[in-house]
């Protein structure tokens, strides 16, 4: 499976305010793309539209598998997942939360149990598995949401600030999980991050958004070593207050 996501000329406004202005990019399979930029630059909006959770005012979102286009619909939705910035967990145990998407896909009880156990072990949250998901701390909830996404073995994963609440060891564990999604499942992983260091650590490509436009994008090493655009340089040097 090698699914790519192509967004072209995306426009989106909220209450008269332009969030996205002609944004185009491609998210390739087996690649972690970091979307960076100051607050309000449209990163979350881009993610949500690409993940088919919101409609755009103009432009297009296209999913292709190899050469053929993939039609939007339930089956495509089940090859894609999205984790929001403040994750929403269900009013049940952590284990049931992780099992939810698998059960929805009609896997057998046995298969579900296997996948859930594997995901919990890989994500290192065994100590939380029977807990009431509503009673977790912000950081614990974020880890569970990510493990939940990982368990689905998605072909495209859109993660919004996936480690913002975690301490360094938690960040390391979750970055490892995200890289597994790329490596084991060949997923097109797109993460929005505030954390330049994180982008340096794990991104293969970087897209820099500023005020709803793509200012610069490219392979991660080049992007960080020699940014072309003045705005990019100012952003990377920390001069942009955000």
């Amino acid at each position: 499976m090698s699914m790519s996501v192509m967004v072209g000329g995306l426009n989106k406004s909220y209450a008269g305010r332009r969030a996205l202005d002609g944004v185009s990019c491609v998210f390739e399979p087996g690649i972690i793309t970091a979307v960076v930029g100051p607050n309000g630059s449209g990163k979350t909006t881009l993610l949500r539209i690409a993940a088919m959770l919101e409609s755009m005012d103009g432009g297009s979102v296209a999913y292709t598998d190899g050469d053929s286009a993939v039609q939007p619909g339930l089956s495509l939705m089940r090859r894609v997942t999205y984790v929001s910035q403040a994750p929403v967990l269900f009013n049940t145990s952590v284990r049931e939360n992780i099992a939810y998407g698998l059960k929805a896909r009609g896997l057998t009880k046995h298969e579900v149990a296997l996948r859930v156990d594997e995901a919990i072990a890989t994500g290192g949250i065994g100590h939380l598995s029977e807990s009431d998901a509503r009673r977790l701390s912000g950081g614990e909830a974020q880890r569970v949401a990510l493990v939940r996404a990982y368990a689905l073995k998605p072909e495209a994963a859109f993660l919004d600030e996936p480690t913002s609440n975690l301490d360094p060891s938690g960040v390391a564990a979750m970055e490892a999980l995200i890289m597994r999604m790329r490596d084991e499942d060949g997923a097109a992983v797109v993460i929005v991050t505030h954390n330049i260091f994180q982008a340096r650590r794990i991104a293969d490509r970087v897209v820099f958004l500023h005020e709803g436009r793509v200012v610069e994008s490219g392979g991660a090493p080049e992007f960080f070593a020699s940014p072309q655009n003045g705005l990019t340089r100012r952003f990377l040097s920390g001069e942009m207050a955000y």
Binding site: Y100, G101, A104
Partner: peptide, 28 residues
């Protein structure tokens, strides 16, 4: 119930009906 529950269920692969059922479950 938090309206985002419905969307979250959809991102996990639920059908719209399953997502509604999840909303009801949250309030059980």
């Amino acid at each position: 119930v938090d309206a985002r529950v419905r969307e979250t269920a959809l991102t996990l692969g639920a059908t719209p009906m399953m997502a509604e059922w999840r909303m009801l479950s949250e309030a059980r």
